[in-house]
Each structure stands twice: as structure tokens, then as C-alpha cells.
Design a protein around this nucleic acid. Sequence first.
DNA 1: GTTCCTGCAAAGGTTTTGCACCATA
DNA 2: TATGGTGCAAAACCTTTGCAGGAAC
Lengths: 146, 146
Amino acid sequence: MTERGQRWAEHAHERLTARGHRAGGARAAGIDGQAQGGGCCTAAELADALRAGGGRVATASVYRSLTTLQEAGLVRASDLGGGERRFELVHPDGLHHHHLVCRNCGRMVPFTDEALEAAIHAVEHRLGAQVEAHEVTLHGLCADCR
Amino acid sequence: MTERGQRWAEHAHERLTARGHRAGGARAAGIDGQAQGGGCCTAAELADALRAGGGRVATASVYRSLTTLQEAGLVRASDLGGGERRFELVHPDGLHHHHLVCRNCGRMVPFTDEALEAAIHAVEHRLGAQVEAHEVTLHGLCADCR
DNA sequence: GTTCCTGCAAAGGTTTTGCACCATA
DNA sequence: TATGGTGCAAAACCTTTGCAGGAAC
């Protein structure tokens, strides 16, 4: 697990406890699994990962944990295509990234870009809207596969 | 149907014929339904629209038509959340738009933005990737609901 | 001890597949 | 006429919900 993921996991456990939630196995699967997986996992992947480690967890409970994490603003659901919902970490420092999905190797390459964020902010102003979240997904070939 | 949608429908029928596909009822539902619906419909909506007009079409066939349209580069699937896949028109002039999804009224507000496109193009270059398609989705409140 | 979380099972929804029939070219 | 598209039905898939048991506080 990356140090950044570790920090997020601690932050997530603390925030859930502060909100009055209890700590159980499925919650650990949701949080620690996300932190270890880098934060772009499906519910089934998280459940499988915990079961592979000897744990016993129901996929349904992972969904429930992820719903709780969403409500607490700790993860965000995103459909990158493929019919399955993936869940991303929301870091306390506010930094977030977007994704390039490679159609050859299937990898998801995360990236950040200030100009992109600025452009989105400008669109928000121009439309008179109030943007609370946004996602950008690029489809094509990653640098390795090109 | 808008004139732009009309042009797209003719273009789509021509391209499918050129690719050796035959014209049937479900294909008409896929193409004409998309053109009339403005190009942001689910498969079920397209099937219902045709059935409301007295036609008889299976939802499964609409899915098959949409798959064919995707392979021909005439529509693009996008998950805007909500668990259902929506299909958007791909216009021959290359112009495309993105969406603001209002969490209050549920409306999808389309928009275009050159600075946004430029920023994405710059990201593509910086990553050394080859971007073939991209989508930007904003979530929040539209101008009316704010 | 009480409340909430969890596992299991079943239901719900969307999308895909199998197969025989029919229409297009 | 031969091929591919179509409708119907069933399967497959992901996600949600109900319920009783168990764990956390």
C-alpha cells in the first residue's frame, strides 16, 4: 500500500467513526481494499481481495460499505465503461485526478492537469451552473501501447 | 427531429449500407429513434419509442443495432451514472459536446467548450498518449436549479 | 444490553445470448 | 435464394433489498 493510500485509510476510518459508524469486516474490506488497490476497484474486486486473504465477506456488504463511504465523501463512484462501477478514493487534500483508459492494454492511467481544471471552472461560470464534481475520461492508447 | 439529427440519420443509414449491413426495423429504431430523441437515449427508451408508434421491436435487437452503430463509429456509449448506458450521436462533422448532469432536476445540459478541448489535447501530448475519444461530465446544479 | 453492521439469499434491473423465423438484397 | 437481421425467451451480469444472527460500542 502506498503511503498516500495509508494516510487515506486512516483518515477514512477516523471520519466514519466520527460520523457514528461502527467498524466491521466489510468496512475494512472497503477501506483497506481500496487503499491497497490504488482506489479504482469494483465492489467484486474488493470482496475477492479480502476473501483471497482468508476473510469472509459478502459482496452485498461491500456495496453497503461503499455507499457509506460515498455519503461521507471518502470515495466517488465512476462509470468508466464496461458496465461495472468503479470506486475512486477522494483524498483529504482535495487533489484529484482523471483517467486515460487504454483500449489495448486496458490499463487506466491517472493524470492531473491544471489547465483542464481551469477550463472546467470557466465552463461552470459560463453556464451559470454550480459544479460539485466532475470527471474526465480519455479513451485511446497509452504511451506504451501507442 | 432537428435538421442536424436528420442529416445524421441519413449519414448513418448510408454508412451502414456501405458496410454491408441490411436495413430492418430495429436498425430504424436505433437510428431514427436516436435522431429524434436528440441522441442521449437508453436502449429501453428507443424500443419504447418505436413501440409507442405502433412498431414491434425487441429491446435485444435495439442493443444489437446500437452495437453495430458503435462499431461503425456512429454512436458512442457513455455511462453518466444511474446504472443505465446511454448512447450519443457521433456527428460526421466531428463536433461533439459534453454534459452537465443536474442532481436536482436530473436534466442533462449539453455544452461545448474550446478551451476544454484544447486542454485535453495538451494533456494527450504531455502523456504521450493517443486519445481517440474523450468525455467530460460535470455533476452539480444547473443554472435553473441553482 | 442495544444498536448497527454483516452474511446469506433472493429480488430487481439492465444487457447479452440462443434459436427459429422472416425480410432484405 | 442465401444471408443476415429480428423477435421472443432465457440466461448472465451487476446491484439492491430483506431478514436474522452477530459484533461493536
